[in-house]
Design a protein around this nucleic acid. Sequence first.
RNA 1: GCUCGUGUGGUGUAGCCCGGCCCAUCAUUUCGGAUUUUCAUUCCGACGACCCGGGUUCGAAUCCCGGCCCGAGCACCA
Length: 491
Amino acid sequence: MANLAPELLEARPKAERRVGLPDLEQAVEGQVVLRFAPNPNGPLSFGHARGLVINGAYAERYNGTLILRFDDTDTVVKPPMPDAYETIQQETEWLLGRPADRVVIASDRIDLYHEHATTMIEQGFGYVCTCTAEAFREFRLAQENCPCRSVSTEDHTARWQDMLNGTYRPGDAVVRVKTGMDQRNPALRDWPALRLQDTVSNPHPRPEVGSKHQVWPLLDFQSAIEDHLQGVTHIIRGKDLMDSTRKQTLLYEHFGWTYPQTMYWGRVKVHEWGGFSTSAMRKDIEGGRYEGWNDPRLPTLSALARRGIKSEALRNFWLELAITQKDISVPLTSLFSHNTKVVDATAPRLAFVRNPVRLPLVEGPNAATLVRYPAEPEKEPRNHSLASGHVLVESEDAAHGSFRLKDLVDVDLREGALHAGSLERKDGRPIVHWTTDDAQETTLLVAEDDVINKVSGRLEPHHHPAGTVVQLERIGYAILLDDGRLLMTHE
RNA sequence: GCUCGUGUGGUGUAGCCCGGCCCAUCAUUUCGGAUUUUCAUUCCGACGACCCGGGUUCGAAUCCCGGCCCGAGCACCA
């Protein structure tokens, strides 16, 4: 065989095992345009981070453009939150370490969407449908044209004017894209592109928009038109939007445009969190169940940041999950593990003594020096005076009777006092953390499931500013809050 | 119901398009061990997987057929 046809034995060179994100199809260096398009009905959540991280990473890889687009075209069901426009931009910068290259606000661009609707109607691939939603559902299932479809283009143009001038009221009419009621996929059959919203009772929260428009595009239409206007080359989004791609592709064909390359990811559930929706969180915050968007029980970016999760950890987390269409459920420990890697070397070590018991230290040293950064033992050592002759240890540790005060001395508990023994470590007795009389009394907050547990104790004196992620020895990582309390980051 | 999509160790992920180098990669978890005056970090080791059934082939995680599971869309929400 080798002699007869050696070329048959020559294997196609197998690609190296891929690490990280795959390359983009048809990507040209410097010309890739991506977008991340949240609804600004609240600040960003954990799940949003995926869209930002993945799209941002590709923009960076190809030296392309990342657009942050606010899809704020619903004033009734999911009304935007005024603060969110600013907040989301800040969160974007926090997460990616740089701002988006371009910011687009859909509600500023309603006239452009109207123009395209006009074109669509005049050219006969869009029409104004006055059927009720229920009636149209029947037509969709039966694959029958609705009566509006046979109305002339002139009349549709007139109807369109009546939508714009307020003759029609919300619910009376929608603009549909003619895709064919014989589409195999029911979702694609003459899908709705624009509808009426009562913006007098439900004005858009941005004052410059307010009640200016009554005719508003739906997501599939707005997004399709905007992607074209912005020159988006690649769309990477959740697979729940696969049918949107198909709908939009049909629209692009009508307009004679080429649809961007698309990639999808599946649903991600975090086992510890279950389901949170932005609207539900908003309601619970307003109802007082949570203290705010950054309540440590909430899966928002601000809550994670406040808790001490670094943006680098979040980026690494999403990059590791990459882009598969599988629906997955990940444990929070996976994110924590990334955070530990980011934070450990720079987290100062401090002692936090829970449920402290104060004990005399008999014949012990009168000063102690402990390491603050194990990675750099010489840096800013922790010096403490023991002049009071007392130390604080956790009552649970004290129960053992014989142990070693970390970096200090062996002790034995007799008659309510710790009797100092060897300064050097001599035996295998357990090592416990401890602190001094001048340790401040404080509380460690631990978010667990839907409650915040409070653990009181004494924190070793320190000079670290609020916001520092520290490692509480033998307990875990925590962040120093403005009010002097501690918030557990993770173990 | 119709349409679409996904099924690799406990959890994620690579490999699948173009069959052999795959007794299947990497990470995490769990368990063991080493270092360490933290139950942290670091290091070493171990356990552990191709949804099921047929078929094609010398050879199938990879191709074909059938089945099953799970998820999503079918909103005048995003």
